[in-house]
């Protein structure tokens, strides 16, 4: 299995829809979304609250299954895979950055970064590699600190280190600056783009932030669950 198909596409969605049944009512969260993303591109998915951005990100990353339509991730069709097989596909090739960081509170910054390497069974020089990733985000001195001892910006930088330490082909970011103040936001944005360039990974991010979106190669806009541009 390669990292992209012949056309250099790492991600392709065709007529993807997501519906949720709430009692008698069916809520259409996404309707017929089609898009394709090439390797090493940076892509922003924007839209107002409730437009389906995060759902689309989850579907593209294989964290959820669409109600209809097909998604092709890193050359594999997701519809034919169960959740464990989708997890195996992501393993070591896909990184994530979340709006609320999702660092494990009982692990130190260093251990949180190490965790990503442990999951992909890269146990050689694990500490050195995790420290190197922390160094890249400027936090090698804070490795022994727990998340509760770090500021929001620092926590997000640790999360970024955790995402890039495995050298992913694809990095998904869900509102990566959503919980940060203006100054910190710029710092994290700069880091996100520079690190992606450095390791040559494709970046797919969901954001409200027009400045952040404008730094991407392409922008997909969602409105009421439909892709409008």
């Amino acid at each position: 299995m390669g990292n992209s198909n012949a056309a250099g596409l790492v991600l392709q969605a065709s007529n993807v829809s997501k519906r949720v049944n709430l009692g008698d009512q069916t809520i259409h969260i996404l309707t017929d979304v089609s898009l394709s993303i090439e390797a090493q591109q940076s892509v922003a998915i924007v839209g107002s609250s409730g437009s389906g951005k995060t759902t689309l990100l989850g579907l593209l990353a294989g964290l959820d299954s669409p109600s209809s339509g097909a998604i092709d991730l890193l050359g594999s069709s997701l519809e034919s895979l169960d959740e464990d097989e989708r997890a195996a596909l992501r393993n070591g090739k896909v990184g994530f950055v979340f709006q609320s960081f999702h660092l494990l509170p009982n692990l130190t910054a260093l251990e949180n970064v190490q965790l990503a390497l442990e999951v992909v069974h890269r146990s050689e020089n694990i500490t050195e590699r995790a420290l190197s990733a922390l160094d890249k985000v400027g936090l090698s001195e804070r490795g022994n600190h727990l998340p509760s001892q770090l500021s929001g910006g620092e926590q997000q930088r640790v999360a970024l280190a955790r995402a890039i330490v495995i050298g992913p082909s694809l990095l998904f970011a869900d509102e990566p600056t959503g919980n940060l103040d203006h100054g910190t936001r710029d710092q994290v944005c700069d880091l996100l783009f520079s690190l992606c360039n450095e390791i040559g990974c494709t970046l797919v991010l969901v954001t409200h932030d027009s400045d952040l979106a404008s730094r991407c190669d392409r922008i997909f806009r969602l409105d009421g669950g439909r892709l409008v541009s």
Binding site: A87, K93, H102, L104
Partner: peptide, 18 residues
């Protein structure tokens, strides 16, 4: 309740259920 965070994250990072 505490560890379900960890589990969801591990699943995101590609660890299998088993």
């Amino acid at each position: 309740r505490r560890q379900s965070n960890e589990v969801a994250l591990l699943r995101c990072l590609g660890k299998s259920h088993a």
